[in-house]
Design a protein around this nucleic acid. Structure first.
Lengths: 143, 143
DNA sequence: TTATACTTGCAACTCAGTTGATTTTCGATT
DNA sequence: AATCGAAAATCAACTGAGTTGCAAGTATAA
């Protein structure tokens, strides 16, 4: 999605060592055309090198806490992850009910509805997740 | 949230028997001021009667499939549920990052951004979930 | 009453994610 | 180059929400 990022530099800026697993996570997320499940990330790293799942989970958790990665709670028990670099701003997601795949949609302007979405006075809204559910064009073609 | 529903009649319309557990699930969701986790629903039913968790999970799953209840994937591995009766139309939710509690927000008009949210031509969007994350007024008062 | 389908319960399971303790690796210092 | 300490990765065992298969109970119709 964005090869324009210098991942080693990004890690250095965060005060993190550019270890092979951290770089692999960032590269895989950077190349992915859609949000990936932790399981998928793990398998893609394993195609290159031996790695323990705990390591990947801990890295993803750390990146999420630092805001380098966004964790999406799209369905049930599986989290999806995507890069949160400057080239990949927040945007809505589409999830197909049939194949469960996740597409990234274009960012939308929420200015108009933003104040409505704050809720009761005193709430502080930090960010908004929009998820669209339906059936994707691929699955519609088949049936 | 809506005591105006006649739950027995609703179940009859769905061709379901008005069993004590089914009624309890509907009543609890009907009285809740916010979306509840399956665990919470289970505990609230157990305050009245002995019940197995599998029964509650199956009922929630069945109600969700029938569109009587909405299942919300707000975070990680826990699902939240809310009544999907005529008095409780779809609406955005606010989740506090501190206390993790879920508030229901007022429905918003999405007409203007609806077409943008469909995604690639051929996708069929069925419904939209909007989740706002931040810190609620209660938690802000404390800190 | 009996046959039937529907509903609930129980025990065991699944599986994504987590925990804690141990080992390895890396970069700095001697 | 050897050593030391912190950061990073590993391993095994665990957690817990949700699921499965099957047995037992209960309502409805014939």
């Amino acid at each position: 999605m964005s090869d324009r990022c210098n991942f080693s530099r990004w890690l250095a800026l965060e005060g993190l060592r550019a270890t092979p697993v951290r770089l692999a996570v960032l590269e895989i997320l950077g190349e992915a055309p859609r949000a990936l499940r932790a399981q998928e990330i793990l398998e893609l790293i394993r195609a290159r090198r031996r790695v323990n799942k705990v390591t990947v989970y801990r890295i993803l958790e750390d990146f999420t806490r630092r805001g380098m990665v966004r964790k999406l709670s799209l369905e049930g028990r599986v989290n999806h992850f995507e890069l949160a670099c400057e080239h990949h701003p927040p945007h809505p997601h589409f999830q197909c009910q049939t194949c469960r795949e996740v597409q990234c949609l274009e960012p939308v302007a929420l200015n108009r509805i933003w104040t409505e979405l704050q809720g009761p006075v005193g709430n502080r809204a930090d960010h908004i997740d929009i998820k669209v559910e339906g059936v994707c064009h691929k699955c519609r073609d088949i049936s």
